[in-house]
Design a protein around this nucleic acid. Structure first.
Length: 808
RNA sequence: GCCGCUGUGGUGGAAUUGGCAGACACAAGGGACUUAAAAUCCCUCGCUGGAAACAGUGUAACGGUUCAAGUCCGUUCAGCGGCACCA
């Protein structure tokens, strides 16, 4: 027997697959389709991270299994290649970002191929390819035409280090998701996408898809739906101050109002304000604060009373003061609130600070001590016609009352904000819009797509908040497509999330330059309410890419480009691979593992097997060098199985009697475990089976074939090699082994014999025997230990256990 | 604060969903082979007592349901993730 020379074996099979285009998929197959998707990587300069192979191997296992099960499998890959790190690297090293991208893609490709992923490389897409981003731009134009893309002057999140605007989703704990630098507010004119228009559907349609509960919960949480009412408060200035509240039932307890420091009424009222200087000073200090400072919870409530204007509580006619305070956000609801200090914690704190009256309108707590916010148990008091009602009933009654008096309407609100879609950087898709003094914002004609990124001298971001493209006069100056007059191009580019919001569609028809995707291809790949059957990706994208791409897909559905309203039928999420020290891998911690080193030392199959064996796929797992050694040891033993190969007796297709049930059981286990992402237990079952074969010192062709096919998705190279050298043919042309439920059972089974729930003996019975036989055997096994005791109860579980309950 | 999740040996983790807790590995210890080491193979391996058979005990803590609880229910503690001055 040859040595297990994994390096040359892996190379041999990778070349074989490439030459034979083994994993190339076409639409003319008679087999049922199955579309498996992994998140395409951002090709960074560091090369493939040791964490990448975890999800990619998992879905590769599924893809290989599905092919062996007779499906026409699409398992594609591509590159999400626009982005800041590439641009920054290009600036630092004075290389064009396109060149940096090409180099990085080459490295990633080499590494991915070396791990033996069964991607269909012929469908590779790259978001920075003009033939690709032509369609990203096209989608933007459709959004604009439907009024879902608009330019707006607004306070945005500005990363001081990246010098770029961030979407809300990209701000984590007040700092930049990517570089962790401080994020400040900056007023800028930005392209926005109306994702809020889809908020309700993004919640509702989660019902029909198979996502992990935590993913659904996160998205619902992020969208943040609440129900309540908008209520109009008249002011002494003769205006109507509209507020949003989830607790209209507490209206009688509203003793003051608060508006955001950015509220437009402040300008309107400025003439009549006696303390305008104080108000202005507060507005300024609020504007200076970063989002993080402003949202710090522990801090004291601050604010300024507006002297010279007050409001009237519509239910009881009482005059109440109006304050400005930064605890009221302009971006949520109406930017103004009615304050009910008795029943809202923030209002209570504010009232304490400013010595404002606290009125109890829901009995059940102690409002001297703290706000009583419970909606379940309280009873309405001090509330006129609401007195005596439960909170729930009071909400209904007051809402009806408000509607009748035309003072308020029921209202649903969302925390979700529109998506800030402009980035002031070079390396992104140009936004295909021009600004004309006469016509305003005008889309460029679709025939001019793609609007290519021009070559520039300097990619340096600017502190002024302008894109580097703004310095290019040839690019900026253009003619208005509508009136032919002179106009200027938009110089901001799209965020990285743009290209990834629809890439899975392009895989179905990657070279179509007439349409985003052809009708024919779309029909072929769409089924059962979605296009992608199974999408695996990181939890960190739950409220970013996953939400964005659902939004775009719904939009494409609305304009008739796709056939279903959800893109992904099933979503799963993998855990991270941590460093050996249990910390996140990072250069600064010095705990980074390089996949190239691992492949050299343990082989691609060893790496794949280890990453699948390391633990629960959905949980984070620390890297372990001795752990991968164990997996390599198993592969060595698999190689060693070749010593025990014997010719089958009989017709040559049968498992040997001694291993028959073991094989059926393992086929069943591996078949099911892959579907539920329990790769670790599937591998454990294969290890056990291998140990049994070692004990038997014999494996016939039927057994070897089944064993190798089961192992193949996990360790494709070694399994193909042994399969071939045993004269069994080409493994990837075989079909997935079947199991027989009846043959999974052993003829004799060991049962546990308990007395009063404690194990007292073991016994062997024939499988499936009846209750009386089990009891009889159990009593023999117990011997005379039951003497003198009264049997109270006898419990039997078929093929498992007998429990005899005794007294005395 | 709200929402979601998790807690099992020295370690990663199993346990057909209520039926022998610790599968499969890793680490450790002992042995075989070797001049030696590596590799490989064999044995031991939750804790307590015992030479052993075995007995007791044990799944974060306490309580409950049940013939039977890691699994179900209640309370508490600890940790992780998401949201968060969102009215």
């Amino acid at each position: 027997m040859r040595n297990y020379d994994y390096t040359s074996i892996e190379k041999k099979w990778q070349e074989n697959w490439e030459k034979n285009q083994t994993f190339k998929v076409s639409e003319d197959s008679p087999n049922p389709k199955y579309y498996i998707l992994v998140e395409f990587p951002y090709p960074s300069g560091q090369g493939l991270h040791i964490g990448h192979p975890r999800p990619y191997t998992a879905m590769d296992i599924l893809a290989r299994k599905r092919r062996l099960q007779g499906y026409n499998v699409l398992y594609p890959i591509g590159w999400d290649a626009f982005g800041l790190p590439t641009e920054n690297f290009a600036i630092k090293n004075k290389i064009h970002p396109a060149k940096v991208t090409a180099d990085n893609v080459a490295t990633f490709t080499r590494q991915a191929k070396a791990i033996g992923f069964s991607f269909d490389w012929s469908r590779e897409v790259n978001t920075t390819d003009p033939d690709y981003y032509k369609w990203t731009q096209w989608i933007f134009l459709q959004l604009f035409k439907k009024g879902l893309a608009y330019k707006s002057e607004m306070a945005v999140n500005w990363c001081t280090d990246c010098k770029v605007v961030l979407a809300n989703e990209e701000v984590v704990d007040g700092s930049c998701e990517r570089c962790h630098s401080a994020v400040v507010r900056k007023v800028k004119s930005q392209w926005m996408l109306k994702i809020t228009e889809y908020a309700q559907r993004l919640i509702d349609d989660l019902e029909g898809v198979d996502y992990p509960a935590r993913v659904k919960a996160s998205q619902i949480n992020w969208i943040g739906r609440s129900t309540g009412a908008e209520v109009d408060f008249a002011t002494t200035s003769g205006d109507v101050l509209k507020v949003y509240t989830t607790r209209p039932d507490t209206l009688f307890g509203a003793t003051y109002m608060v508006i955001s420091p950015e509220h437009p009424y402040i300008e309107k009222w400025s003439g009549g304000l006696k303390n305008l200087d104080e108000v202005r000073a507060y507005q300024e200090s609020a504007a200076k604060k970063s989002d993080f400072e402003r949202s710090e919870i522990a801090k004291e409530k601050s604010g300024v009373k507006l002297n010279g204007v007050s409001a009237v509580n519509p239910v009881n006619g009482e005059q109440i003061p109006i304050f400005i305070s930064d605890y009221v956000l302009m971006s949520y609801g109406t930017g103004a609130i009615m304050a009910v200090p008795g029943h809202d914690t923030r209002d209570w704190e504010f009232a304490q600070t400013f010595g404002l009256p606290v009125v109890e309108v829901v009995a059940g707590g102690n409002i001297q001590e703290a706000a009583f916010t419970d909606c379940e148990t309280g009873t309405m008091v001090n509330s006129g016609f609401l007195d005596g009602l439960s909170v729930e009933d009071a909400k209904i009654k007051i809402t009806e009352w408000l509607a009748e008096k035309k003072l308020g309407t029921p209202k649903v609100n969302f925390k979700l904000r529109d998506w800030v879609f402009s980035r002031q950087r070079y390396w992104g898709e140009p936004i295909p819009m021009v600004y004309c003094e006469k016509c305003g914002w005008v889309p460029i004609p679709e025939s001019e797509l793609p609007l290519k990124l021009p070559e520039v001298e300097s990619y340096m971001p600017t502190d002024t908040g302008e894109s580097p493209l703004a310095a290019l006069e040839d690019f900026v100056n253009c003619t208005c497509p509508k009136c032919g007059g002179s106009a200027k191009r938009e110089t901001d580019t799209m965020p990285q999330w743009a290209g990834s919001s629809w890439y899975f569609l392009r895989y179905c028809d990657p070279f179509n330059n007439k349409e985003l995707i052809s009708e024919e291809r779309l029909n072929y790949w769409t089924e059962e309410g979605a296009i992608v059957n199974w999408y695996n990706g990181g939890m960190e994208h739950t409220t970013l890419h996953l939400l964005y791409s659902r939004f775009w897909y719904k939009f494409l559905y609305d304009i008739g480009v796709v056939k279903t309203c959800e893109p992904y039928a099933k979503r799963t999420s993998h855990g991270m691979i941590l460093g050996e020290d249990g910390q996140k891998m990072s250069k600064s911690r010095g705990n980074v593992i390089n996949p190239d080193d691992i492949i050299r030392e343990y082989g691609a199959d060893g790496l794949r097997l280890y990453e699948m064996f390391v633990g629960d796929f959905e949980k984070a797992a620390p890297w372990s060098t001795s752990g991968i050694r164990g997996c390599k040891r198993f592969l060595d033993r698999v190689w060693g199985l070749q010593e025990f190969i014997v010719k089958n007796e009989g017709d040559g297709n049968e498992y040997s009697p001694g291993l028959r049930s073991a094989f059926h059981k393992v086929v069943k286990k591996v078949t099911h475990d892959i579907e539920t992402l329990k790769f670790n237990t599937a591998i454990a079952a294969l290890m056990s089976l291998s140990n049994e074969i070692y004990a038997a010192k014999s494996i016939n062709h039927a057994e070897l074939s089944a064993f190798l096919i089961l192992l193949n998705p996990f360790a494709p190279h070694i399994s193909e090699e042994i399969f071939e050298s045993a004269g069994l043919g080409i493994l990837n042309k075989q079909s997935w082994p079947k199991y027989d439920e009846d043959l999974c059972k052993d003829e004799q089974v060991e049962i546990v014999v308990q007395v009063n729930g404690k194990v007292r003996a073991k016994a062997v019975v024939s499988s499936g025997c009846d209750k009386s036989q089990m009891l009889e055997t159990a009593k023999i096994a117990l011997g005379d230990s039951l003497n003198g005791k009264t049997i109270v109860k006898e419990i039997t579980v078929p093929d498992k256990l007998v429990n005899i309950v005794v007294k005395g």
